[in-house]
């Protein structure tokens, strides 16, 4: 779980020095309603190397990576709600329940909603589905780190939301409310 938080940009000194590993774990947004809800999509492929080891002969998507996909979907939703002025990091997994395996070739749809948002933090609820089947329910908390770690020095740039993240939102954020682009 710690790795998840770091991947999403949690403040660890070594990350600042190394300019942060950055990766995107969702493929695109399908719906984006500013400050309220977002729906994203991820295709799972056997070309993802970790599936060869998880597990040999029985490849399934690791649950922690489902949490990462939800953290990115919900995290971008929370960040966009404040126009990316805050550095948003995953702070707490409130709960995560998994009902089914996700296998190579599956397309999962991630539904995230903002439950509460305040100057310092936000909480989100989320459901992952494959077709009509509920795969997982994942509720998260995000911290706006600038508001909570007063006095701590951060890099000038917003190290959480890079251009790569913004490109996912092309066509959504400007219009505030857009229905499916596929």
């Amino acid at each position: 779980m710690y790795r998840q938080a770091r991947c999403f940009g949690a403040p660890a000194d070594s990350l600042f020095e190394n300019k942060i590993m950055r990766w995107i774990w969702i493929d695109k947004f399908l719906e984006f309603e500013s400050g309220k809800r977002a729906v994203s999509l991820k295709n799972v492929s056997l070309a993802e190397e970790h599936l060869h080891d998880h597990f040999p002969g029985f490849p399934i998507m690791p649950e922690c990576l489902m949490i990462e996909a939800m953290a990115q979907t919900a995290g971008i939703l929370v960040g966009e709600a404040r126009k990316f002025q805050e550095k948003v990091v995953l702070a707490k997994i409130k709960n995560a329940v998994f009902h089914h395996f996700v296998r190579p070739g599956d397309t999962i749809i991630l539904h995230a909603e903002i439950e509460s948002i305040a100057p310092e933090a936000a909480s989100t609820t989320g459901v992952i589905k494959r077709g009509d089947t509920v795969i997982a329910q994942i509720n998260l908390m995000f911290s706006h780190v600038d508001k909570n770690l007063a006095g701590k020095k951060f890099p000038e740039e917003n190290f959480v939301f890079t251009d790569m993240f913004n490109s996912l939102l092309t066509g959504f954020a400007e219009t505030q409310t857009t229905e499916g682009s596929n």
Binding site: S116, A121, S143
Partner: peptide, 14 residues
């Protein structure tokens, strides 16, 4: 922990 205080505040509000 500190983030739990915010979680608790959100839950109490609801």
């Amino acid at each position: 922990e500190s983030i739990d205080f915010l979680d608790i505040v959100f839950r109490l509000e609801k």
